[in-house]
């Protein structure tokens, strides 16, 4: 037991280090640009005064390490700086939108994880059956669809007939239930795309295990196919399955951007696309850092969970 905590502590430290490096990459990326960032942003026609003002605003007159340090300490205190396009504090812009995006991602995850794990296990159990082949072909098709294609098909089908709204408009009076109803189509789009991936990977993880000698042993002990899968394969497949889930939830984060744009959903993805279009670099950096954090934390969680479920690591010799 002693070893496991050391291991988890090491993973946590490594995660912190990764986050630190990511922040450096996100910040440092602006340094890759040859020439002057201010001129690049304002174009050739800009006057010297406006250029100087922008440099002042971006803090370009200081050296890169100093600017990085200021930025990082600001971020750690919840201060991401000012948006260049709107002149508002970024933390204000991000605030409620972060909540909305997390809500959408969790909504989709709550639908996708149980469905895909069940389908994956069933496909592994009945492998090479009609069910397996059909679900495999369907999943492959779903993986191949761009998110906006799925989204528009759902709009055409479910929003045209007026069952669900195709846009998410929130007011003060919006209740959680309303919100669940309004966000159903975006959540369903994400679910469809992610479920396909997750199901295929779950199936592969379990089938991989079914070739193990201990599975043959379980069958030779006269255990039913269901018991073989649930009691003998699944406990060993936990680590790969946890990683599959983490990987796909991380994928959700990316998928959210496109889906938010299609459904005009007031989340971080929308904000980011606007910022990219306006080349509002501080906002893009802030949102990229938030997404990357979520991604790293998910992977870290998966890492720790799969360590805990591994008997070889839990019970040392």
């Amino acid at each position: 037991m002693h070893g496991i905590w050391t291991m988890i502590r090491q993973r946590l430290l490594l995660g912190m280090l990764t986050l630190f490096i990511i922040s450096a990459v996100i910040f440092g990326a602006t340094e890759l640009l040859p020439g002057d960032l201010a001129r690049e942003l304002l174009g050739q026609s800009a006057t010297e005064e406006t250029l100087a003002a922008l440099r002042e605003q971006l803090g370009l007159n200081e050296s890169a390490p100093v600017r990085y340090w200021n930025w990082l300490t600001g971020v750690l205190h919840g201060d991401f700086g000012m948006s260049m396009a709107t002149n508002k504090p970024i933390s204000e812009l991000v605030g409620t939108r972060l909540g909305n995006t997390l809500f959408l991602a969790l909504y989709a995850a709550a639908l996708a994880v149980p469905i895909s794990l069940t389908l994956g296990v069933l496909a592994a159990l009945w492998r090479n059956s009609i069910f397996d082949r059909a679900s495999n072909a369907l999943a492959l098709t779903a993986i191949s669809f761009p998110e906006f294609f799925v989204a528009y098909i759902l709009i055409l089908w479910l929003a045209q007939s007026g069952i669900f709204p195709s846009m998410v408009r929130m007011t003060e009076a919006t209740t959680t239930l309303d919100f669940l109803y309004m966000a159903f189509l975006p959540a369903l789009t994400l679910t469809l795309v992610v479920t396909a991936h997750m199901m295929r990977m779950t199936r592969a993880a379990i089938i991989n295990l079914l070739a193990s000698p201990y599975i043959e042993m379980a069958r030779l002990k006269g255990m039913s196919p269901m018991r073989v899968v649930l009691r003998h394969a699944v406990p060993n497949a936990l680590a790969p399955i946890i990683n599959v889930v983490a990987l796909n939830l991380a994928y959700l984060i990316t998928g959210v951007v496109v889906v938010e744009v299609v459904f005009v959903y007031p989340g971080l993805g929308q904000l980011m696309i606007d910022a990219v279009t306006n080349r509002d670099i501080p906002v893009v950096q802030a949102i990229a850092l938030i997404f990357a954090c979520a991604y790293v934390l998910l992977n870290l969680l998966a890492d720790v969970l799969s360590t805990i479920t591994n008997p070889r690591l839990m019970h040392r010799k």
Binding site: P213, Y214, E216, M217, R219, K221, P311
Partner: peptide
């Protein structure tokens, strides 16, 4: 199987469920 006919495999290390 397991009740009236049992099986002992070549590699016990691989045939016990970890």
């Amino acid at each position: 199987r397991g009740k009236r006919i049992a099986y002992v495999a070549q590699s016990a290390a691989a045939s016990f469920n970890p």
